[in-house]
Amino acid sequence: MTDAPLLAVQGLSRRFGGLVALDDLTFAIRQGELVSLIGPNGAGKTTAFNLIAGFLAPTSGRVVYAGRDLTGMAPHRRARLGLVRTFQQAAVFGDQTAVDCVVAGSHVRAEAGIQAGFFGTPGARRDEASRYEAALEVLRLCGLDSRATSRASDLPYGEQKVLGIAIALASRPRLLMLDEPTAGLNAVESESVSAILDRINEQGVTVFVVEHDMRVVMGLSDRVIVLDHGQVIADDTPDRVRADDAVIRAYLGDFDIA
């Protein structure tokens, strides 16, 4: 079980017109790992996320998740298999309260169907109640429990980003992919996001994160994959990646590796 990787990206390429955003990307993530994907701006990190989560179709190559070839599968079906991603910009259901957002995130966890909901069966009500309980639990985990009844779009940016993670968590992912979860956050907020990531990884969720903040990356990751010009230039432990010549060259002038 632990031998086969949870996620295997095989020869993934994507071109936009003449621009090659990703070129023959290959890597794997094992169950239970916390892996970071880093690279200079424009290296193709977000494109890789979009391809893996199904928001973009690859020009060639394939994504294998839990032994299944996901080629051509819609994002919502991938999410149902436990492959869930978050977005770079704070993404919430703006018009709803925080707790409602998280309940919406637990959509695939609903046991009772629409028909049961329509007739308001006792099962549907129990289901509803348990989803609320679970949502409050997730909010607590993310330190947002005091904001449960605030409207999502009224929350400050940092809390909206954390709420985005909470929404994703509510779906109980097996592989959670986070696109720059600390971008735009201050030091304190970044700290609490990395604590959340650590906690959910400890609970057994495989975490794959695009990150710019090197302190977060080096402190958290089991493994770091470095992308430059659409290609993997390093894939190793944080310490070794930090010492890698190719990585240093790719980053030179971009920012220093702390």
């Binding site: 989560a53 928001f55 819609a74 994002p75 919502h76 079906r77 999410a79 149902r80 869930v84 991603r85 978050t86 977005f87 993404a91 919430v92 259901f93 703006g94 018009d95 709803q96 919406a104 995130g105 637990s106 959509h107 695939v108 985005g164 929404i167 994703a168 509510a170 779906s171």
Partner: peptide, 11 residues
Amino acid sequence: DNEDLAASVGI
């Protein structure tokens, strides 16, 4: 409110 986000959690 957010179609992409909805898809990302399986809706």
